[in-house]
């Protein structure tokens, strides 16, 4: 049973890149969202095993979205996608309930290793 993934990022190319990393690695990308508002809705609808979350997005930030998702579902696994220089935002996201984070630019092995670990599959 492949793990179901929701990808949240406002940049299409980032979503595509992350999708490519997951596809063919035993994951199923079940949905995408381009901002925090959509992310919360899609999460409620899809109940994915894993959500990758960009931090800076329009309408609602990834931090806010994470906070709401974790409030909805305490077992939600949200992995933040951050860039260097966003350290304090990542810490905020962790306080909001994020399970882990990856730092751009990332290698696909790193992404997979982080999410497998955080899902307890490693």
């Amino acid at each position: 049973m492949p793990k179901r993934v929701l990808i949240v990022d406002d940049a299409i190319f980032m979503r595509n890149m992350i999708k490519d990393i997951f596809s063919g690695s035993g994951f199923e990308v079940v949905g995408e969202a381009a901002n925090g508002l959509e992310a919360v809705e899609k999460y409620r609808e899809l109940k994915p095993d894993l959500t990758t979350m960009d931090i800076v997005m329009p309408f609602k930030s990834g931090i806010e979205a994470t906070r709401e998702i974790v409030k909805q579902d305490a077992r939600a696994v949200v992995v933040m996608c951050s860039a260097l220089g966003q350290e304090s935002l990542v810490m905020e996201a962790i306080e909001a309930g994020a399970s882990d984070f990856i730092v751009k630019p990332f290698k696909s092995e790193d992404v997979l290793s982080v999410v497998k670990k955080v899902l307890g599959d490693a």
């Binding site: 940049a11 299409i12 329009p58 860039a83 260097l84 220089g85």
Partner: peptide, 26 residues
């Protein structure tokens, strides 16, 4: 700080756009 940029190509040239200013692409 090190800042994330989106690299684009026009002709032979490569240019960068600050990700902070990029909203999306099509």
């Amino acid at each position: 700080a090190v800042q994330p940029v989106l690299l684009v190509r026009v002709g032979e040239e490569v240019l960068g756009l600050p990700i902070a200013k990029v909203h999306g692409a099509a």
